[in-house]
Design a protein around this nucleic acid. Structure first.
Lengths: 194, 194
DNA sequence: CGCGCGATTGAGTAATTTCAAATCTAGTGG
DNA sequence: CCACTAGATTTGAAATTACTCAATCGCGCG
C-alpha cells in the first residue's frame, strides 16, 4: 500500500459508530493523535519500555505478546485495522511494559498518549463514553476467550479463531496462530491435518 | 452476620475511591440500586435468563460460571465484597445468559439495572468515568489471567490465586478452586499435596 | 541452484484426565 | 456423646493428550 489514506476519516467512522461528536469536537480529538508508519517486524512497544501510548490500527496487522523465561511467546491479541493495542496494564498502572507490541505486516497506526486520552475523556463526555464502550468490548472478548480456553480443546479454538478472523489465515505464519492458541506449532500442525 | 449493614456507605466509599460525587449526586445514583439478600447456593442469574442487572457485592461471595455440554463447570470469577458480577456479554449485547451467577455463601448485593446504569452514565459524567475505570480493571485482570493460563501450569496458577485472595481458601470448596483453575479436582488435590 | 525459514512428521516423554474406590469431615438425630 | 450420612477430598491405575526434540520436507528468493 504505497501511499496515503485518510486516517482522519477512518477514525471518525470508527468513533461515529458509537457516539456522535460535532465536527469541531472530532477535529479537536483528532489533533491529539499522531500518525506513524512501521515496517514489518518493527517493534512498537518492547518489554521494559515506559508505556504512555495506545495505538489505533489504520492498516496492517499488529500483535501484542508476552515472552516468558523459556523464551516462549504467547500472543494476547492480533490487532487488525480499527482495533486498538497497547500494554494496558502498564498504560494504566504506570509500570514498565511486560507485554510487547510489534508489526506482523507493514502498518499505519494512530497513536494516542494516555494523558491526552484522560484529558479528552474529561473534557468531552461522549469521548469518555466511547472509551468505556471500547474497553467493555475488550473485556467481554477477553472473558469469552478465557472460557474458550478452559472449555474447548485446541482444535476447537483454532476453528473459532479462523471463523472469527478468516483474514488471519493468509497473513500470519502458523507458528503465531499456535502462540495465540497456546499450543506448540507441532500440535497445531497435527490438528488441522487430520 | 445477623443484621444490617450500611449498603449506602459501602457503595459510597467504593465509588469515592475513583471519582468524587456531591452528596446529592450520590444519593441520586444510589436511589437506582436495589438491595437484595440471597442464601447460600441460591441462583442470581441462571443460564437462559434475560439479563438486565449487574450486582455489586456488599457481603458474602458469589461465583460466575459456565457449564458446558458435559455438565462440567468453569468458574469465570469469584466475587467478593466490593466486586461486581453479571453476565456482561448478555447484559451489553442483550442476549440470554450463558453465564450463571450464584451464591457461595449467604450474600447481600446491590443490583443495578443496565438501562439505569446507562442513564446515570449519561446524566453524570463522573459516573461514566467510574464505570470506565471499573471495566478497565476487569479487562486488565482478564488479560492477566489469560496470560497466566497460557504461561503457567496449574500449580503456579493455584499459588497465584491463593496469594491474591487468601480468604478464598477457607470459604470455597476445593472443587470450585479447581473449576476456576481449569483443572480436575483430582489434579488440584495432587498439586498441593506434594 | 541452493539457502533459509516455516511447516510437517515421528518417537519418546511428561502431564493431565478419567473412572473407580477409599477416606475424611461436618452436621443430624437418637 | 455417638452413629450415620452426604458431600468433599484423596488416592491409585490406566488411558489420553500435548509436549519436546530431532529429522525431514517444501517453497520463495537471491
Amino acid at each position: 500500500m504505497p501511499f496515503p489514506m485518510d486516517a482522519k476519516a477512518i477514525l471518525k467512522d470508527h468513533i461515529a459508530k458509537i457516539v456522535s461528536l460535532t465536527d469541531e469536537q472530532f477535529d479537536y480529538v483528532f489533533s491529539h493523535f499522531k500518525q506513524q508508519s512501521y515496517k514489518k517486524g518493527q517493534a512498537i512497544i518492547s518489554e521494559g519500555d515506559k508505556v504512555d501510548c495506545e495505538y489505533f490500527v489504520l492498516e496492517g496487522c499488529l500483535k501484542s505478546f508476552y515472552i516468558n523465561d523459556e523464551v516462549k511467546m504467547f500472543i494476547l491479541q492480533f490487532a487488525m485495522p480499527t482495533w486498538w493495542a497497547s500494554d494496558y496494564n502498564a498504560l494504566y498502572n504506570g509500570g514498565r511494559a511486560t507485554i510487547s507490541v510489534d508489526c506482523i505486516t507493514d502498518s499505519q497506526v494512530l497513536c494516542l498518549n494516555s494523558a491526552d486520552r484522560e484529558k479528552l475523556c474529561n473534557e468531552i463526555h461522549p469521548v469518555e463514553h466511547f472509551f468505556r464502550w471500547r474497553t467493555n468490548k475488550g473485556y467481554v472478548a477477553a472473558q469469552k476467550r478465557l472460557l474458550s480456553f478452559m472449555n474447548n480443546d485446541a482444535r476447537h479454538r483454532y476453528e473459532e479463531l479462523m471463523a472469527l478472523y478468516p483474514a488471519l489465515y493468509n497473513i500470519v505464519p502458523k507458528q503465531l496462530i499456535a502462540a495465540y492458541l497456546g499450543v506448540s506449532r507441532e500440535t497445531l500442525s497435527r490438528l488441522y491435518n487430520s
